[in-house]
Design a protein around this nucleic acid. Sequence first.
DNA 1: TCCCAGTCAATAAT
DNA 2: ATTATTGACTGGGA
Length: 408
Amino acid sequence: PESPLSSAEESVNGLAGDPLASQSSSLKPPSEDPSGGESQPGTPLPLPGHSGLSIQEMVAMSPELDTYAITKKVKEVLTDNNLGQRLFGETILGLTQGSVSDLLARPKPWHKLSLKGREPFVRMQLWLQDPHSVEKLMDMKRLEKKAYMKRRLSSLSDGHSVDGGLVGSEYMQGSQSPGQQQLKKPRVVLGPEEKEALKKAYQQKPYPSPKTIEELASQLNLKTSTVINWFHNYRSRIRRELFIEEIQAAGGVGPGSEAGSPSLRGSKSGEGDSCDGTESEGTVETRQSLGIGLEDHRGACKDHDMEAESEAGGSNNSPAQLDCTATGLAGPGSSGGQGGLGLFSLTEASSSSSASSTNIPASGPARNPRDNNLRKKKAANLNNIIHRLEKAASKEDPSDLIHPLTRT
DNA sequence: TCCCAGTCAATAAT
DNA sequence: ATTATTGACTGGGA
């Protein structure tokens, strides 16, 4: 079992290629902002002059882009020219440094992005295509530095504050209301043990009921909103990790290990602690199987009882309790054939008979510590999916759901 | 109302 | 200095 399929992929890196080059020509066939105005809270950045298209229009028309290749290239260009994420983000993408870092490090595959989510990638692509992209940014950098120096200098000599209205967008104005400096919101920082506890809870129940949340909150001495937020964030971040691993797996998994693909690269797989880290007692080991190839795509899975599924108690270890039939079954947006590179496209599941190892054979000597992690994440994701399916179906297995009290 | 995708922005880590 | 991480917020859906 192993699909070499490799071969080809050669030109994966479309960098220069530029898929998006559609440029003008037949732009905007569809509607176009009828009424003037269009308000559009967004539309920041001047956007490259290009035809008068708004980014959204471009996004809408954009063909499928290889987000991974794009971010890789962007990272390369930025580092090669000593340009920082902050500058790049603020002037090119209209995003903050943290967001840029996140995007560059963990780009989601195009087909999983919403229209809004695609925007930054279209901008990056556009930027990469601009022959003067780098020098323009360098100019910005110089300007900023100059302004900074000036400010500094004048404040030193004058002992004054100079407000340069440049770059900044709106700095929060200091409403230093006397006596009320505490409006600063401390920024909750969860301790390691709290995170541990939350992760534990998550494994048992990714979607805790309000009651459970309350309990957790009081037990850990946290605000319920914090617990809620934590679950939201954790769920979506785990989901994202999966996307990444999915991509990597799809890319160069093969006997040859490594990649041949000039553009697919390893990365970092955060594992480190993402999920377990310390996992005292429990130890996840045996959680094998769960051989889902690429679930997603709304894979339909039928499981038996997810509730008990996470170890914790450390006793059960039923092998493959969830056999998933993740057939290609395209979801709503199946989108038919879109032409062009299907880099990420649906790689139909090859699940064939289920079971079987998912990917990364790891030929050689053991050494695949992160495997558990992957499995765990997949299991978690499965739970998510299951949860939604059940909810949607709202039929059986009312394990503990919140009853629809209302309902007569 | 509950979820999620995207982000922000404070602060950790390099 | 930069880049990475992450709790909280916002807006859109159903």
